[in-house]
Design a protein around this nucleic acid. Structure first.
Lengths: 386, 386
DNA sequence: CTCACTTAGTAAATTCATTGGAATAAGTTA
DNA sequence: TAACTTATTCCAATGAATTTACTAAGTGAG
């Protein structure tokens, strides 16, 4: 029962085609006006006029001539990678992370602020002030990934227990203070946007990113769009029950995926099973796996088993070709992937498994800030699929 | 790595706004030109000119005057419900079902053809010929729902084991033969389209329809669009493992949802547990439940338990507000819904469960043909969300 | 009953992004 | 050097939406 679609107007067409030209150049690397026209089916005239605007805006530059193919050599165009800088913020549980990236996702600045227990919003202002103070390129806007239930359309943090935020109109607050476009989204959703924009499977229309850290959350692209859910709660797979009669979860149920496969659950289990002088860490797990420590491997295999079941559910439901693991546990790489793929093969249709590619993210710990900044690319510049 | 979005042209704008006007009238029931303009943000002039075309095309009619509100009374417009007739076909396992419906989904003709073991395509032609012979309204086109893997974009049945079809270019075959637009899609997907177009939650942006019959399949709407999947295999939840070490399924795995909750599994189980003179049927189950037969109720409760787990997975992943049960098992109504809702509450986050509404379809056994015809409404007339 | 006012809808003039065709730029090849 | 290619720009034409003005057809106050 939503409203009707928007009307089409000349301005809309203009904007659409302008963005289309930009996207073609963005994807094309170094491309001539004619080739943009061929790619987009726009006429050379339309392309030229839009390119003129892009040159004027400082988003695109001419980068030389193509070798002639028997006629006038084409002038190659390319995105001016640092023509805009984007601010991406990661409001994590214990610290604020902020990066400034360029249009290609190259990190130009990185700032971290450990939360001091005081007003989180004030500290967020402080971090943004710091980032802005050190930038001299035009800033496109601010993108934010935060845990909790976030209404991306309204720009409101509806619920973020850890931060003590409730119905906080973060977009309007920051927009007013900095005079810049602001976008926010749930951190799990944002990791999917990061993969979709900068990851190894960029632009894949269907893409599921599974974030395994303190909890487990998923970000989902379907038909080229992020899935928010009707109550902005899509991707909450951490609390799907995979082990009937399992351990009590913080959510009140028993045997949630989080209780058997989150990084924190694994570390807790290792601390209990194989106590060491220091608490277990991911690095320690990696070392133990390198030495083929059987107990550690068994524990990882078990987690992979349950992750495989959860992913079988996802793949069975959505038939998304790419499933990407991110978050701290993803650092285990093949030690996690191999048993996980075996489990997946046991729990989903053969043809679907064959059509699925489970990988580990290559974006590292900046994934949330990258994705947050990518919100700007999508919304302000249209670097995103139809 | 798909192609770029399409360019915007004047013709596209025109078509878009034309469809927008039609949709406003379709949704509005009886609505004036000015109100269409208000609703769509189009100017009265643009609305008038498009309405003129719609009147001319016989898609819309003037149906009288609205009471005056202190000025010239508005002329009310309404869709000419039988201005077009749509052919919807259900290529089921053992028979072909065909209906002709009008623009509102009212059934105008119904034909059935029991498959005789011969060439299915020839029998399909025969059915369509029969339907066409008895219609005298302009026919908008042909929509088809069929089991198997169907590439909706290409209009090709890639794989339909039961029908012996493999890479059959059904759209082109029928299009050539009848000179009408043809659309096809997987039958589970088509049921979701039926619900989205004609069901109790029409136009819900996120909607999951679960079909329980011989097998179990889901049709999914996310962000107002049907989910096809990268290999056209979305919704294959019948083969998600819900019972580790369960019964062997036809897919080769053990404990698939289909083995514990499909109508056929239930009937088989009843025949084994409570043998009767006649084999068990849905009607017999309903009768037994009305008498509170404990064994039957226990068996249904168990199936509902597993369906609840599967739906918990769906809801956790997608946070779709509406989940609708269809297919033969849905006829059990509250006897199925109540234990299912209990199971769901035990297997998903409380907040998500509270934001979910599980219902039983009201569209009955015509759901596939209705959905197949709705493919035409969506693709030919744009009766579908942005 | 008439006049002022309101609302619906149409007509004519205007705008402007795309288009199509011609012109120009700048090479290659016979 | 002339003929041909290919890239790009220039310019008039197109046409869908918009703006503005106008007509149609009612209500309500005096």
């Amino acid at each position: 029962m939503q409203g009707l679609p928007k009307k089409a107007s000349r301005e809309q067409s203009k904007l659409h085609n302008y963005r289309l030209v930009f996207k073609a150049i963005y994807d094309g690397g170094a491309i001539s006006r004619v080739d943009v026209a061929r790619l987009t089916n726009l006429t050379p005239t339309t392309v030229s006029s839009n390119v003129a605007i892009l040159l004027d805006e400082g988003l695109v530059q001419e980068v030389g001539l193509a070798p002639s193919g028997g006629g006038k050599p084409a002038t190659l165009l390319s995105v001016l990678d640092d023509g805009r800088h984007l601010i991406g913020l990661d409001v994590a549980g214990h610290e604020l992370r902020g990066t400034i990236i360029n249009l290609r996702g190259a990190i130009r600045q990185r700032q971290t602020l450990a939360l001091n227990g005081g007003n989180v919003l004030e500290q967020l202002y402080q971090l943004i002030d710091q980032l802005l103070a050190n930038t001299h390129n035009p800033v496109l806007g601010i993108g934010i990934g935060a845990p909790g239930v976030i209404n991306t359309t309204a720009g409101v943090v509806q619920q973020a227990v850890n931060l003590g935020w409730h119905n906080l109109a973060l977009r309007d607050l920051l927009g007013k203070r900095y005079g810049l476009p602001v976008y926010l989204a749930n951190d799990s959703h944002v990791t999917a946007i990061a993969e979709h924009t900068f990851g190894s499977q960029r632009n894949a229309p269907n893409l599921v990113v599974i974030n395994i850290g303190l909890g487990i959350g998923a970000g989902i692209f379907i038909n080229g769009r992020i899935v928010g859910g009707d109550a902005w709660g899509a991707g909450e797979i951490g609390h799907v029950v995979v082990q009937p009669n399992g351990i009590l979860c913080r959510c009140g149920h028993y045997g949630c995926l989080e209780t058997v496969a989150s990084t924190s659950a694994l570390l807790t289990k290792l601390d209990a099973t194989l106590p060491q002088a220091e608490p277990w860490t991911i690095a320690a797990i990696q070392a133990a796996l390198a030495n083929n420590e059987p107990t550690v491997r068994a524990i990882i295999d078990e987690a992979a088993h349950y992750l495989g079941i959860a992913i079988a559910n996802v793949v069975g439901l959505l038939n998304a070709q790419f499933v990407i693991l991110a978050g701290s546990l993803a650092q285990l790489g093949n030690d996690l992937l191999q048993p996980l793929r075996r489990s997946l093969a046991h729990h989903a249709l053969q043809t679907l498994v064959a059509a699925t590619d489970v990988q580990v993210s290559t974006l590292g710990s900046d994934i949330v800030t990258l994705g947050a900044a990518a919100l700007l690319l999508a919304n302000e510049l249209g670097i995103v699929r139809d």
